[in-house]
Amino acid sequence: MKLGMPGMVLRSAAKKPATRRFPAEIRPAYSATRGHVAMDIAKCNFCTLCQLRCPTGAIVVNKQEKTWQIDRMRCILCTACVGACTRKCPTMETSYAPPVGERRESLVRFTQAAVPGTSPAGEAGRA
């Protein structure tokens, strides 16, 4: 249908807006969407493979302290860590990480409980 601009304008006037009323109306994420890297710390054996593969150096693994830390501001969501892990600990979630007010708030540290399995989700906290 080629009515030119008047046609487009008339149709737009009759239709509801092309934009969504965010945050009242949220588009569901696609299954492929790269939102943020989540970590299942209970399964981790601190092999540091993810740290080695990370192109931006966003991941810091500490074997002694049993911590796994990610800098969300450095992370470029390339899924290199997800592909590298043999135990499938880091996973790509479809939701975006919450915004941060300060640079240091983007550091998220996961600590493994002393006996693996007692705290399956691990403890996530701002570093």
């Binding site: 696609y30 492929a32 969407t33 790269r34 969501l77 390339c78 899924t79 592909g83 790509m92």
Partner: peptide, 21 residues
């Protein structure tokens, strides 16, 4: 683009030797 590659502007799908997904 987001539905097929996971990113809206940065696709992040190309790699040496093929594609990531």
């Amino acid at each position: 683009i987001e539905e097929t590659s996971g990113g809206r502007v940065i696709f992040g799908t190309c790699k040496i030797g093929g594609v990531r997904r």
